[in-house]
């Protein structure tokens, strides 16, 4: 029961945390470009404003999809806080991605359709990697439960360093950061307008933004599992990882999906498999 309450509170706290993180991201990005950047609370202003926009719904299914999307993201994070099964929470996260795409496909707009197709290819690129990362974790801990990670005495990072790189690669794709902002770009606009997000407007867009915050928190939570033994280590790992993500986001240009798939399926997969084999042989 205590665990349940804890998870509920953590989930509630994750929303502001995700928003702050997004604000921090924009602030840091601006600093990297020697700009002032927006206030830290900017993502909250954005979402609040979007909630107040008048509805413009070309298809009621779009509303349906945005609600399911945010529910699934929240549920995945909740399962993580309940220290549940890694694979299961990943599958629940898939629901969220699938419905985001389904909504975009349900509108006869070329931009949202192309965006949705690209989003699907991004999913194709990161899903096998994340599955392998979880299997790698399970080969160390002997279980897929988050709870059992804590039973291991050395940080996972030391045993699965290559897998962590693969995870980082997959996460960049999942978060849609450059060079993988292929399906939709979070800043400015691109050749397919706002890609998969084009037709979501007002409150629906706010919900998708919310689900993105929750996904970010969940992903950082997964990264944190790699240094669970000490709180300081965890923080250091997360800070370094996220800074690296922002840095990569800023210094790279958008690549094509072909490039993304080849690199996800080639070198990155090789890294992941190598790490699992290496651990297995040891």
């Amino acid at each position: 029961m205590l665990k349940f309450l804890f998870a509920l509170v953590a989930l509630a706290l994750s929303v502001p945390a995700g928003g702050l993180l997004a604000g921090l991201d924009r602030k840091l990005t601006a600093r990297l470009q020697s700009r002032m950047g927006p206030p830290l609370l900017q993502p909250f202003y954005d979402v609040l404003k979007l909630c107040g926009k008048s509805p413009c719904v070309s298809n009621p299914w779009l509303v349906f999809c945005s609600f399911v999307c945010v529910t699934a993201s929240a549920l995945a994070l909740f399962l993580f806080y309940m220290q549940g099964d890694l694979l299961l929470l990943f599958f629940v996260m898939t629901i969220s991605a699938v419905f985001k795409v389904a909504g975009a496909l349900s509108i006869p707009s070329p931009y949202s359709n192309v965006g949705a197709q690209r989003e699907l290819l991004q999913m194709l690129a990161y899903e096998p990697l994340i599955t392998l990362v979880f299997v790698g974790i399970a080969s160390v801990t002997g279980s897929f439960m988050v709870a059992d990670v804590y039973a291991v005495e050395t940080p996972l990072l030391l045993q699965l360093p290559f897998l962590y790189l693969a995870l980082g690669y997959a996460l960049t794709i999942k978060l849609g950061k450059s060079p993988f902002d292929i399906s939709a770009c979070h800043h400015g606009h691109q050749e397919i307008v706002r890609g998969v997000l084009t037709e979501y407007s007002g409150p629906q867009l706010a919900l998708l933004e919310l689900s993105h915050w929750l996904d970010t928190i969940l992903i950082l939570g997964l990264c944190a599992l790699f240094w669970h033994t000490s709180f300081v280590g965890m923080v250091i790992l997360l800070v370094i990882t996220y800074l690296a993500e922002i840095l990569v986001d800023n210094i790279t240009a958008r690549m094509t999906w072909q490039w993304m798939l080849k690199n996800a399926f080639g070198p990155t997969l090789a890294l992941a498999v190598f790490n699992i084999l290496w651990f297995y042989v040891r």
Partner: peptide
């Protein structure tokens, strides 16, 4: 594991797009 992981990811790809486009109005 590699085989199942890839198979599942491909499965999601072809189902999701089918699910999306039938919802159009």
């Amino acid at each position: 594991v590699v085989l199942i992981a890839f198979g599942s990811a491909l499965t999601v790809l072809f189902w999701a797009r089918w699910a999306g486009l039938i919802l159009g109005v």
